[in-house]
Nucleic acid binder design. Structure first.
Lengths: 124, 124
DNA sequence: CGGGATCCAAAACGATACTG
DNA sequence: CAGTATCGTTTTGGATCCCG
């Protein structure tokens, strides 16, 4: 009789993977990067200023993750000083548009949420 | 001349707030809870089994956050043993449907992402 | 300029024990 | 049953220094 070689079924792997991808695009900086790149391509430092106060580490990490997933295209020009442009891939553009719509939806309902919170908090 | 009383402009507060709400609905357990409640209402332990291996602490925390935001309705029946039913509010249903669509979109593109990752990783 | 490497503080998370 | 409280571990994130 064969021993089970996979403790965790493939279904789980699948879920974990999709969850991971979802987290990449909805992460704190992921959202802001995708939305920024929706308007145009950006250089590293440019993007950093555009996004707000993100540390170099987090921005680099976010960009690498998104590039690895195939959402962001990295164009490093072999010049001195270095110049690296980031832009969305077609897949990334789709993702960014969806994230953008989601944030729009949330922002349009902030009043409702704020009201709900006040009601919740003001309850003994 | 007046002194600025707000170091951080309201715009920032607004962004932080919407970011927070977005994180609540896209969080690890938030997503799963919303999607589960999309099919029907659940009791606490029921929901826990349905979602998978979420700790009591995290499930309680997630539900409280979503309830506070006005996405989830909590119905505690005064019986012994306690019985608490969780369901979506109309606002929560809207949110859940959007999250569900987003996860569907991601899952439909997992192959593309996996291919991109292999290409990225296999590069010297 | 665009990062990589390292270190450290803070926050998230899970397991467990306990309560009404 | 439906949580709360506490604790220890793991993760995360930022600051800093460094290099091509």
């Amino acid at each position: 009789m064969e021993v089970r070689t996979t403790e965790v079924p493939d279904v789980d792997r699948f879920c974990r993977f999709s969850r991971a991808v979802l987290e990449h695009v909805t992460s704190r900086w992921g959202v802001l990067v995708l939305i920024a790149l929706l308007e145009r391509s950006y250089r590293f430092s440019e993007l950093r200023r555009r996004v707000g106060d993100v540390s170099e580490k987090m921005l680099a990490q976010t960009l690498q993750t998104l590039e690895r997933d195939g959402f962001v295209h990295r164009d490093a020009k072999p010049v001195i000083p270095p110049r690296v442009d980031y832009s969305l891939t077609p897949l990334g553009r789709e993702a960014a548009e969806r994230i953008w719509e989601l944030t729009r939806w949330v922002e349009a309902r902030l009043d409702q949420v704020a009201t709900a919170q006040e009601s919740y908090d003001g309850r003994p």
